[in-house]
């Protein structure tokens, strides 16, 4: 049973950042702007917020510091994403251009600034954020150890974001407008919706969430930040497409991938799997191969936003 608990706790570390960032990508893409810059925005959010923790950890610690850092990460990501929004909405440029530029810029900027300020590129931080056991909830049999022990507050924030995203996209006026701009911006414009504004909002939300996702990825898995989020931004793009741009499907896609990834990295802790004469690398490949196979059978009816990737031009038909 302990193994099950352990695997569940590990799964969160992989799945939650993917979930948050992929949901961010959803806001951008449902508004009609492809966001390939998620990787770079994650790096930027993680860098600024870890630096923030690094500076303030002498005076603060624990959850309050982490919550403040999440705010910082979101703000940094949101501001950074404005560059992408400006190029792809205002300048009507090919949306891969600014995305690639941001992906290239963020790690270089992180290394450059870190080395200029502190001499080395790794930014250290103390992990004072682990919650051994959530009061009350952690004592519930089965569910307690599964979800409310050895966890980070970020896990619950991730679930909260998922719920909130679903409500916003499917049940609010803003969500409806967002979707309209991604499907048929001309029609949206004809009924008085400002397509540019909605698209800006979509990209900025994606930046905020990707920035938070960067921090959420680094905190449980490491005690220093080395200017990389290990390709998780690209994986989040994959989860987004895998999840067909829908909140609930993205949720399952993120956890599908997270569980696969957990098995791949923790299989040696399972005695039965460890005995099998299979190379370590095969296990590492499984999440990716499994995703491809699932996609091959489930992609016939892609539900990509129809106007995705097309700059909106008021004058065109």
């Amino acid at each position: 049973m302990d193994i099950v608990y352990f695997l569940a706790q590990q799964t969160m570390f992989f799945a939650i950042p993917l979930l948050i960032v992929a949901l961010g990508g959803m806001f951008s893409e449902r508004s009609g702007v492809i966001n390939i810059a998620l990787e770079g925005i994650m790096v930027m959010g993680a860098f600024i917020s870890i630096f923030f923790i690094n500076i303030f950890q002498d005076t603060m610690s624990g959850q309050s510091l982490l919550l403040l850092a999440i705010l910082v990460a979101g703000t940094a990501g949101g501001i950074f994403s404005l560059l992408h929004a400006y190029a792809s909405i205002k300048l009507k440029a090919d949306q891969t251009i600014s995305g690639t530029a941001l992906n290239l810029f963020a790690p270089a900027f992180a290394i450059f600034v870190a080395r200029m300020i502190q001499g080395v590129q790794q930014v250290q931080f103390n992990d004072t954020f682990l919650i051994k056991k959530v009061p009350l909830l952690g004592d519930i049999p089965f569910v307690g150890p599964l979800l409310f022990q050895n966890s980070y507050i970020t896990t619950y924030i991730g679930f909260g974001i998922a719920l909130l995203s679903w409500v916003i996209v499917s049940h609010t006026r803003f969500g409806l407008r967002l979707r309209a701009c991604g499907e048929h911006p001309q029609a949206a414009d004809s009924v008085g919706i400002n397509v540019y504004k909605i698209r800006y909002a979509g990209v900025i939300i994606s930046g905020v969430l990707a920035g938070i996702g960067g921090l959420v990825f680094v905190v449980p898995t490491s005690t220093n930040f080395n200017a990389t989020v290990a390709g998780y931004g690209f994986l989040a793009v994959a989860v987004l497409i895998f999840g067909q741009w829908r909140t609930n499907r993205i949720f399952f896609a993120a956890f599908f991938f997270g569980i696969m990834k957990t098995f791949a990295s923790a299989y040696s802790g399972v005695p039965f799997l460890k005995e099998l004469p299979i190379s370590n690398e095969v296990y590492k490949m499984i999440p990716y191969i499994a995703t491809l196979i699932v996609l091959a059978f489930s992609s016939k009816n892609s539900q990509a936003p129809r106007a995705e990737g097309i700059p909106y031009d008021k004058g065109s038909r």
């Binding site: 390939i36 793009v237 497409i241 990716y288 990509a304």
Partner: peptide, 23 residues
């Protein structure tokens, strides 16, 4: 033939290729 978005398939193939080559 399966309408899989080439971006996601390529990303997956990147990782599979890396691990396969290492192996």
């Amino acid at each position: 033939f399966a309408n899989v978005n080439e971006v996601i398939a390529s990303i997956m193939m990147n990782y599979i290729g890396m691990y396969l080559v290492n192996m």
